[in-house]
Design a binder for these strands. Sequence first.
DNA 1: TCGAATCGATTACAGGCGTAATCGAAAGGA
DNA 2: TCCTTTCGATTACGCCTGTAATCGATTCGA
Lengths: 123, 123
Amino acid sequence: MDTRVSDAELEVMEVLWASPHPLTATDVAERIPSERGWSLATVKTMLSRLSAKGAIRFSEEGRRYLYTAAIARDSYVGRESQRFVDQLFGGRLSPLVARLAEADALDKDDIAAIERILKELKS
Amino acid sequence: MDTRVSDAELEVMEVLWASPHPLTATDVAERIPSERGWSLATVKTMLSRLSAKGAIRFSEEGRRYLYTAAIARDSYVGRESQRFVDQLFGGRLSPLVARLAEADALDKDDIAAIERILKELKS
DNA sequence: TCGAATCGATTACAGGCGTAATCGAAAGGA
DNA sequence: TCCTTTCGATTACGCCTGTAATCGATTCGA
């Protein structure tokens, strides 16, 4: 349903989403960007909490668990995006675009990509 | 700096941002959407916390305080938007647009508005 | 065989958040 | 002059988060 994950938990989700196959806790820890500076224990806590909230699943492989994401990145990100524009922009995307445009946060490529998407939409 | 406010606190900020003049705690409480169902005490807690984090200011009017936002909505929203696209879309807006487009979250008007903004940008 | 390493589970602990109730001081009404 | 109301400040309290340490069980290496 509307499972939400914290910022730190999201880091773990990204690792699982990026992997084509299930990962052990150690595997996950190894793939967490080192800037995070997490201990293995911390990663294990995240995995437990994510299991508890149903965002990931695991199967047992001997004494170890193999974790996989239980929700798709696309749908998670879609829900969060909707939520975001609802909360700050009354559900409309254009004010967000305007805000980022003013802040020079859009480069040529990004702009071109957006235009392509919109053109496609209208056809 | 990078003051962040919680969802509930944001509700209070919106009230202050929407008012052309300072408001007392009671004024704020009256303007909070009633679906929230907050008691006056809750609103006062929010005001204290927001003051503590520097998001709002107050001046004393007799025994009461008159509150005003200390940060502009525009800049707050700008920072949060940047943060959001950085976190979920690697800093690019187009994947967000794509995601919302797929979810049919864009209506004709919104699309037209976005196109206008982009056209303006390129000129 | 036996100590070391490793596993997931449990516990820890401070700070933030949502949602108030209570408190002492002041002001206002009768 | 009191009692009531109202103000901001302080306290409450349970859940979530970030960041682990510890524990009992198992496995692995020597």
